[in-house]
Design a protein around this nucleic acid. Structure first.
Lengths: 343, 343
DNA sequence: CGACGGCCCGTAAACGTTTCCGGAAGTTGT
DNA sequence: ACAACTTCCGGAAACGTTTACGGGCCGTCG
């Protein structure tokens, strides 16, 4: 036990032991090419032996980059977010960057503070998932010289703000085509909060599909909810208790769909025989419920990875061909949908 | 748009604008009391106006603390980990610390590197979930002066290493009492990897309960698996295809239990009528499956929070009364267990 | 009225890097 | 043999803080 509570190895010690200057050590550390092979070899060995690792804070101070990327996310726990997180942190890891995690708990104030005060200077840039902030606030940040990319924007954003999202409209369209193809004509939706990009885009897809099938939309068949299971259950209950209930429900996320299954079961309706249900997201829950969910898959981890690669290019100050990436969604057909039964 | 791509505000600018020295600004920043009230007031106002925030890297360099805590976790995605993460990051946030997330992907090498090279110097300490490292390696880190707490140790650890875990044995005991109380006598287990603390402690609980009920253990009823759903399904299949199958299965996590439900269903067995199943963890999946799972609840988020408060005390260099915290587990009875039916 | 002790505050060193600049060798071309 | 490059490396400044140290000012006390 040579070292007890011994302060960590610094570049100075390595330099001394190698008999070179700290500049040289720094050079081999950063892979510069103006170092003699044998010197590089020697220094590398000593770095290895002493278990030296650069102090990231100092490096950040000096070089103007910290190797840290902020990850702003409303919550950590829900599968939706943790899937994105997972993809993002893995991708960051591969670029030798670390993720600084900051759950905002859906509190707007907290988020502004975080972004404005704590992240700037600590991190080189950020990934912001589902930001509650207005486009103006984000633009201000952009003008301040901060680099970030938004994942799944909640509001429409200024064009200069990099973003990654999923093809909501196309996803909704696929879901509706599937349902219409099975003979459903009276189809309800359980939407997310009004005004959110995801909600409105999917609603657009719903209405377009309805229109092209020559079906008049019925406002009673559109219920808004909060993306939670019990919210979905309440919404579905309201829909199913209608005088003229639908034969299918298109839920705007899997939680809603699971809630809908519960509501159906509570009323003695069989899924999919009496009621078809389509979800959105395709989180693991979709394969756990009975019946397993037909749902529109969002490539969540992939969205995280894509955001990282956008950010990387932003950080390298490359001008980007496209600041906005929309990843494809895909309908996954499982057990919760079926043909309309003639009675 | 006064500031375009303008570098961030430094302590210098604040000092100049306030007509004081940077030392004074630093003092009000850190709440020192040797500042005249009106000066403090003035400086505070300017800090507010300019939206100044200290550069954490520089602060770390100078003051020896960075306000960053490493969060080492095998994976981010699985509910088990994200629940812990969630509790931990929230608690860190409350202490004005940020979490640096590092998924290790179960690769030992990567983990050692992370811990040894990257975290030290960047972070003030770390929370390590389910470390693959040997006690020796962790002790070395401890001797190096690094502060960390282990959550859910995989191997038995040296006493000097702070740790937070769940009451595995007691949980297993509760599960077994429940099953025995329902009349089950032939009870199988699907365990996690042999040698892991969680596995062995729960196995101990199982054997103890069996013994106190006067039942001889049958090695054929113990199958090891990998904590994944399909692993659980294969294990359950093996068990159910025994010449003399059990009437109950105690799975060592909820994934195993869900796999067991699938295996049972595939064989036409009804749960719980023909087969009772108990899980472990009580992640959200447990309430999504049909039938909902009777399971032993681990307070995962709470474990994260507890680890943070241990770490805080470690960082403040308080000597701790106890370095080891074991949080209680609790059986949650739902639909997947029932009395043995006499045929 | 002089000395002493608080209260405030400024100066400057230190933290561990990166990187610009320039210099000492060694190499090449004439 | 000399000039002009290369190659390799060291010195030192800079990054933005914190904090030890010391000094000016004012009030108080003997």
């Amino acid at each position: 036990m040579a070292e007890l509570a011994h302060a960590r190895v610094t570049i100075r010690e390595v330099a001394d032991e190698a008999g070179v200057s700290i500049a040289t050590v720094s050079r081999v550390l950063n892979g510069r090419d103006d170092v003699a092979p044998e010197t590089r070899e020697l220094v590398s060995r000593i770095i290895q032996e002493r278990g030296y690792a650069a102090n990231r804070g100092a490096r950040g101070l000096s070089a103007g980059r910290t190797g840290l990327v902020g990850l702003l996310v409303p919550l950590v726990f829900p599968a939706y977010f943790s899937a994105i997180l997972s993809g993002a942190t893995e991708a960051l890891q591969e670029h030798d960057l670390r993720a600084v995690l900051s759950p905002t708990g859906h509190e707007h104030d907290r988020e502004v503070t975080l972004l404005d005060r704590l992240m700037h200077g600590l991190t080189d840039g950020a990934l912001i998932v589902l930001p509650e902030e207005s486009s103006q606030e984000l633009e201000r940040l952009l003008d301040g010289g901060y680099r970030f990319v938004v994942i799944d924007p909640l509001m429409p954003l200024d064009d200069r703000i990099a973003s990654v999202s999923a093809a909501h409209t196309s996803g909704a369209d696929q879901a509706m085509k599937h349902l219409l193809g099975l003979g459903h004509r009276r189809i309800a939706i359980i939407t997310g909060p009004r005004g959110w990009v995801a909600t409105e885009d999917r609603r657009r897809g719903y209405h377009a599909a309805l229109a092209s099938a020559g079906i008049l939309p019925d406002p009673a068949l559109e219920v808004e909810s909060n993306f939670e299971i019990d919210g979905g259950e309440r919404a579905a209950a309201q829909i199913l208790d209608l005088a003229e209930p639908p034969t299918a429900i298109f839920a705007f996320n899997d939680n809603h769909a699971i809630g809908a299954i519960r509501a159906a079961r509570a009323r003695g309706l069989r899924v999919p025989d009496d009621l078809s249900i389509v979800g959105f997201d395709d989180v693991e829950h979709a394969t756990i419920v009975t019946p397993t969910l037909t749902t529109v898959r969002q490539p969540l981890a992939e969205m995280g990875r894509t955001a990282v690669s956008l950010l990387m290019r932003l950080l390298e100050r490359h001008s980007l061909e496209t600041l906005h990436v929309e990843l494809a969604t895909r309908l996954v057909v499982r057990e919760s949908t079926g043909p309309v039964l003639v009675r």
